[in-house]
Nucleic acid binder design. Structure first.
Lengths: 162, 162
DNA sequence: TTGATTGCAAAGCATTTGCATGCTA
DNA sequence: TAGCATGCAAATGCTTTGCAATCAA
């Protein structure tokens, strides 16, 4: 039993809720997928192992995981909610490639420190922050350069990873 | 005629579009409202001056203003799109008070520099970035302190400004 | 006159809710 | 057994689209 599952069961008990096969499965699939998942994404994955599961249950369980501190909501601006692992995961920010959809995670203590300083100057108590850099990743830039040079180069397409 | 209106008319002409009373009015109301407006907000304001206007037109015109470089889309994570002035407005980021909804704008050259440095390290070409700090503003923190000290203190409520 | 624009109604999405049925504690 | 959970269908809220009528160039 992983630590995360214990956290989940503890939360379930504390809140007077019930353990179900669906919740177990959804948590399981979520834990072994180290990606940013939308509810839809997770629903599709879970469905492969239990086709009878409903979209609603996935939505509700993701809410539950968030409350339990295992997941965190992330919004990338496409008006869909994504979720990522939150338990004992260091805070990080995102670079999002607008060409291929790739998401690069990064962390900078320097950046965090400056943010805190700015907040302090405004006497603002930060509980959470979100930083997103939108642009073009190294690989897509390289491909763009190549295409400018060789006519007929193969188009470069990445699969978005959520 | 303000500079912004000229920019708008130029964009209209360049794109082979047409100038209409509705677009003029929507731009006008947008320009004199120095706030973060949702489409709904702007619709309500415009409606006061022309009750016959449709929601759809406001949506479409905000898209147009964004294309013309006069407005910028901002998403605060509530899955609604807000717009703010973009023409000759310095880039800035937002602190959002989760107690009263107040939005504080700020800018830090230091922060921008570090972001650029991080992006460069990943050979990522940044076209746009978004930084949001969520937390409690100075005023709400003060009120919270007062309430802890004086029982029966008046509750503090701010009007959200978009 | 031609083609863009408007505003209504309807459609589209992502997400939530009502509710009868099913299942856990 | 009591009451939470499930999954369907319907509802919701924001946004977009289809379309006939209208209007700018």
């Amino acid at each position: 039993m992983t630590e995360e599952k214990e956290v989940f069961l503890k939360h379930i008990q504390k809140a007077g809720l019930k353990r179900t096969a669906q919740r177990d499965l959804i948590l399981d699939v979520f834990l072994r997928t180290e990606k940013h998942l939308s509810s839809e994404d997770l629903y599709n994955l879970v469905k492969q192992e239990d086709p009878s599961i409903g979209h609603t249950t996935v939505y509700r369980t993701l809410k539950l995981l968030t409350e339990a501190g295992l997941a965190r909501e992330v919004r990338f601006g496409d008006n869909r909610t994504h979720y990522e692992h939150n338990y004992k995961h260091q805070h990080h920010d995102h670079m999002i490639c607008t060409e291929c959809g790739k998401i690069i995670e990064f962390f900078s203590a320097e950046l965090e420190a400056i943010q805190d300083a700015i907040a302090a100057k405004h006497r603002f108590q930060v509980s959470q922050h979100l930083l997103r850099l939108l642009g073009v990743c190294a690989e897509c830039r390289r491909h763009a350069r190549e295409q400018r040079n060789e006519i007929g180069a193969q188009p470069h397409v990445h699969v978005a990873t959520g």
